[in-house]
């Protein structure tokens, strides 16, 4: 069987979903035998490659970098999978939306709460341009599958990856789709 070309991406999230991925422990060895991780915080690829079979996306879409990467991922992946509550619902990352738009959030973070030099960082490249609202991944691109959970327990991730390796459509139900 052809090896699965797998990517994982970290957008606006806490990396907890990736930690949970690592919690799959010894099954990671099985995974390594069946799949190539072609792009991920775990590996050292700079550019999101072409022809990816499945991409797990952690995190909500919070800034323009996320937005552009998400569109690129969609173009280059057969399966896009929302990985964890932030990608699926916006979750904690989207709690900044209660404050209002990007300006209110930056003011709160860099001005109101600052103890020294209250000002937005001005050096180029320090701050990606924030979107006005944080949104779940599927509001930006079509998503094929969802793995809820904050973080999704390792067993849940494994069920989905096993199915993909076997060339089957993943399926989660019951407690495996519980948010939180």
């Amino acid at each position: 069987m052809a090896r699965l070309k797998l990517a994982t991406v970290w957008l606006g999230g806490c990396s907890g979903c990736h930690m949970s991925f690592l919690d799959m422990d010894e099954w990671l060895i099985d995974l390594a035998q069946a799949a190539d991780i072609v792009y991920s915080p775990f590996v050292d690829a700079k550019e999101f490659p072409d022809n990816v079979d499945a991409t797990l996306v952690e995190g909500a879409v919070a800034n323009e970098d996320h937005f552009n990467l998400a569109r690129q991922i969609r173009k280059r992946s057969r399966w896009v999978i929302s990985f964890g509550d932030c990608a699926v619902t916006g979750n904690v990352t989207a709690m900044r939306n209660y404050f209002g738009g990007a300006k209110e959030v930056l003011d709160r973070g860099y001005v109101e709460l600052a103890t020294q030099k209250p000002a937005w960082p001005s050096d180029p490249g320090v701050l990606p341009t924030l979107l006005d609202r944080v949104v779940p991944l599927h509001q930006v691109i079509p998503v094929d599958f969802y793995i809820p959970g904050c973080p999704p327990p390792a067993g849940r991730i494994r069920k989905v990856l096993s199915a993909l390796i076997e060339g089957k459509e993943p399926h989660l139900e019951g407690d495996d789709i519980r948010f939180g």
């Binding site: 619902t89 916006g90 209660y98 949104v135 139900e173």
Partner: peptide, 20 residues
């Protein structure tokens, strides 16, 4: 949360309103 599990809600198709 239990109802979401029972009814198979694994994502939400509508926009979140995020009221204050």
């Amino acid at each position: 949360q239990d109802l979401a599990v029972k009814l198979g809600v694994d994502h939400v198709r509508f926009e979140y309103l995020h009221p204050h």
